[in-house]
Design a protein around this nucleic acid. Sequence first.
DNA 1: GATAATATTTGCATAATGCAAGTATGAGCC
DNA 2: GGCTCATACTTGCATTATGCAAATATTATC
Lengths: 149, 149
Amino acid sequence: MENARELFQIMTRRLGLLNKNCCTVGGCDLSPAHSHILYEVDRRHNPSMQQIAETLGTDVTTFSRQVQALIKMNLLQKTPDPSDRRVYTLSLTVSGKMAATTIDTQMNAYLDEVFSYMSEFEQETLLRSVKLFNEAMGKSSKCCAPVTG
Amino acid sequence: MENARELFQIMTRRLGLLNKNCCTVGGCDLSPAHSHILYEVDRRHNPSMQQIAETLGTDVTTFSRQVQALIKMNLLQKTPDPSDRRVYTLSLTVSGKMAATTIDTQMNAYLDEVFSYMSEFEQETLLRSVKLFNEAMGKSSKCCAPVTG
DNA sequence: GATAATATTTGCATAATGCAAGTATGAGCC
DNA sequence: GGCTCATACTTGCATTATGCAAATATTATC
């Protein structure tokens, strides 16, 4: 396990599995895709549908349907933007906010458990490194460019 | 962007998009799922179907069909295990090996580009940290346990 | 040699995806 | 104002992906 790609491949695979497992929230069984949407809407301020879809790299039509599903589950709200009536603004319902928080807590709990196998110093180094890595990816123009954050 | 989950969420999203983009290899347009299979078969020695499916966290029946698709694309081979005829052993064809290598190269090239926005020291620290993190996840019993490597 | 366990495949029903086309609103220009 | 074009979002439709239950074939157990 020497080259960079290898390390990241294994890591993302594991985190992906984690994502699958951590999405069961109070009866509702959220797919990773749905969980990602809640996460992203939560961290933004009244984003439009298009913005979130682009950020997540999802086709808008697929995204439209995912949003419909989340609305039906009473986790998401769609509000028409008064300044441009073509646009819909997304926000979490109370249940949606709760679901997002629960998922976040579960994920962090799992990460804490993993961190227990690392020293304090190693943890901090890891988080600092990932932060720098994210920033570097943000600067890169090659691909994955639409992802902000 | 302060808690651990947040950092990893953003990172995996970006790397996921990268995976999507990097899978176009010589005409063949591989899905991330297919690419993961090639990757995993490549790094193992004649694994069984079950082993790979479990490692990737995929249902065996879904996996069986993914394998069929890759065989049809002439990237993968299925050989009956002489010592247990229930078992099929997977291996890459020459084209499959080539595809896997190409993807690996593309991914590493992209990562190199990203690394250009980081200092030598930061890169090394990142890779060392991720390695430790992977090992820690391997030790964790909570979830994602089946993933070896 | 009968029964249980394992590895893989197929049937089937469901869900996810994305392109093309449709609707509704806004912007630019005469 | 009114025509044309661009934009934000939704629906039709065909394709693909998914997973459970059941089938098949082989091996292990007793």
